[in-house]
Design a protein around this nucleic acid. Structure first.
Lengths: 225, 225
DNA sequence: GAACGGTTTTCAGCCCGCTGTCAGAGCCGT
DNA sequence: ACGGCTCTGACAGCGGGCTGAAAACCGTTC
């Protein structure tokens, strides 16, 4: 379990590191908001403990930035005791829980564990193949930073392919999974829809992620093209 | 301070009543899960102590039912020592803390006081999606600064959507949650109500937060439009 | 009980765009 | 050059969703 602590008070930061490490976490500490944001983006943590009061980029900024970038790592915010508004704002900007200072480590750990348990299950992960991103819950697709609109059938097909990225999938398999399993129409429909996906996801971006394996089906490149 | 104790072992129930009353709590005791749930709903407590092992409706059921009904009274669950899974499940179903049997009254009281301190303020009073705000307790809605009046059904629908903001929700799911789960009328009703929400919340403000995902349902933009 | 305002549900018609089909051209391995 | 896949553009039908209105329902008031 890796945790990131973003906290500018050095004493508190050190205390948190010790407390969490004693509980078996691997801990990184960032002393500024900028560093914190950078680490949160670059590394992959199971949880983030975030002080709201930071010089420069504050906790709210970091939190909303991460959420905007679709980073769903569980975030526990540390707020000042008397600032009620902070707590509302913490949850609004996308934090999963908050703790008012001062707090005991026992409580912190308990909350963090609760978050971790909910954590991942909460929202099904977005699936990526290179710079192709698919959010199953929201039913949204991005190629790099631009969102691409797909119809229901196009979405199902892409979802199937991206879940099997890097694998060869036969036309028959696709028909069974994306169309009704008893579909008895023209298998050419798959070619038609592959083409539609290419037109929306590959051609405009100069990519070639959706490969034809003549005689044995199709494959979505696992690096997204 | 009013506390509810839900516990079927009479000796333990009596002990808890004495211990808590000695600490200045006004205590109600329920000996069955059904009674406990009923009391928790009807009365207003500052804390609930809930045994997981109950004949009939058990502690988990009570807890999740209450949370679903948006009753956020702090809940302390009493679990069996060796059942690790119970403790996880306790927190997952929405309990705020748990205690393994056997326990000392001193610890119970201490934990309970800790819960009370965090207490009700814990849960966000309002849910937001961008500049769309919903106050579940007060049953009020604002778009930006202006309050919008909704009927009961409109409110339920919006509440459901805003709790799933950013996610695609199918018409069937909506029917199950906003209408009776066994609703057998015309699903067109959802379209009708979506339209009413749009007329009240989007159109007058030049927004388009309530999107149609043809073939797969609706989605409330998580930035509110 | 009758009248009434508001809410909820049903209904029928319309529209648009998704879906699946097809025929012809293109491509590839043999 | 040939035969089988695959690609491509066009097209017609269908059905999902939208809309306005009317009917059923429900709680209130007289």
């Amino acid at each position: 379990m890796r945790a990131l602590v973003v906290e500018d008070e050095k004493r508190l930061a050190a205390g948190l590191r010790n407390g969490l490490e004693a509980e078996g976490f691997a801990v990184d500490v960032a002393l500024t908001g900028t560093d914190g944001l950078w680490l949160a983006r670059e590394e992959s943590y199971d949880a983030i403990v975030l002080d709201v009061m930071l010089p420069g980029v504050d906790g709210f900024d970091i939190c909303s930035t991460l959420r905007n970038e679709r980073v769903w790592t569980p975030i526990l915010m540390l707020t000042a005791r008397d600032a009620d508004a902070d707590q509302v704002r913490a949850l609004d900007t996308g934090a999963d829980d908050y703790l008012t200072k001062p707090f005991s480590y026992a409580v912190l750990i308990a909350r963090l564990r609760a978050l971790l348990r909910r954590g991942a299950a909460e929202r099904p992960a977005v699936i990526c193949a290179g710079d192709l991103r698919l959010d199953p819950a929201a039913r949204r697709i991005w190629r790099g930073e631009v969102e691409v609109g797909l119809t229901a059938r196009e979405f199902s097909l892409l979802e199937f392919l991206i879940r099997h990225r890097g694998e060869a999938v036969s036309k028959r398999t696709i028909l069974d999974h994306v169309w009704d399993y008893d579909f008895e129409g023209d298998p050419n429909i798959v070619e038609v829809y592959v083409r539609r996906l290419r037109n929306k996801l590959d051609r405009p971006f100069g990519k070639g992620s959706l490969q034809t394996l003549r005689g044995s089906g199709y494959r979505l490149a696992d690096d997204g093209g």
